[in-house]
């Protein structure tokens, strides 16, 4: 039995996106399947209500399909999706906190805790210590710096795209990233030399 399905597997996001704009359900489904998990993950880092997050992500896709005729044809699909999810969740918060007079996109806090890459650390004790320490420093960073780092290094967005998403100009976005790493490095320099000192005396 031969199955004749159009092979979209090798198409890139923008091809899928433009097919979707033309009403191709298959392309829609493929983009959905490709990004749903990632978007839910990101959404969960912005809201503690896991159920609502899935709802938001599905609503984002619903709107994409329903209003597909009005979509821009040149977008970075991933950045567009992440940004739409963020806006949705911000709106959700707005509704929930309506009596507390909040909020805009910049008031949602990035809740995600970075964790330590367990399986991969087959290194010596000192290295493990360092990683755990760094992890703590990372998690102590202000939420927006953390989110910027996440978007840059986990989602691979450019500084420009991050600026767009967080509703700030290019310089501020790049500052967020830079400051995050700078704080880290400063604290870390001190502690690392300490660790090295400790481990060398232990020998």
């Amino acid at each position: 039995m031969n199955t004749k399905t159009l092979q979209f597997k090798n198409f890139d996001d923008i091809t899928l996106w433009n097919n979707l704009k033309d009403g191709n359900e298959k392309s829609f489904s493929m983009l959905f399947e490709k990004y749903y998990g990632d978007l839910v993950n990101y959404g969960n880092s912005l809201s503690p209500y896991a159920e609502k997050v899935q709802d938001c992500v599905q609503d984002v896709f619903t709107d994409i399909w329903v209003y597909r005729n009005g979509l821009q044809s040149s977008v970075v699909v991933k950045a567009y999706l992440l940004s739409s999810v963020r806006k949705r969740i911000a709106r959700l918060h707005e509704r929930d906190h309506i009596f507390r007079k909040a909020t805009s996109t910049d008031s949602i806090a990035f809740l995600l805790e970075f964790s330590v890459e367990h399986e991969l650390i087959d290194d010596d004790y000192a290295t493990k210590e360092k990683v755990v320490h760094l992890n703590k420093l990372l998690n102590d960073l202000p939420a927006r710096q953390k989110e910027a780092l996440y978007l840059r290094y986990h989602q691979g967005l450019t500084v420009e795209q991050i600026a767009d998403m967080l509703d700030v100009n290019y310089q501020s976005a790049s500052n967020l990233l830079h400051r995050g790493l700078l704080t880290l490095r400063k604290e870390w320099k001190g502690s690392i030399s300490l660790i090295i000192l400790l481990s060398s005396t232990a020998c």
Partner: peptide
């Protein structure tokens, strides 16, 4: 070291979760 300290939890959704969604 920094990369190792910045792990993000993997998606816990299964293929059928995504299909249902």
């Amino acid at each position: 070291l920094l990369l190792l300290a910045m792990k993000v939890p993997d998606s816990t959704l299964s293929a059928s979760d995504i299909h249902n969604a």
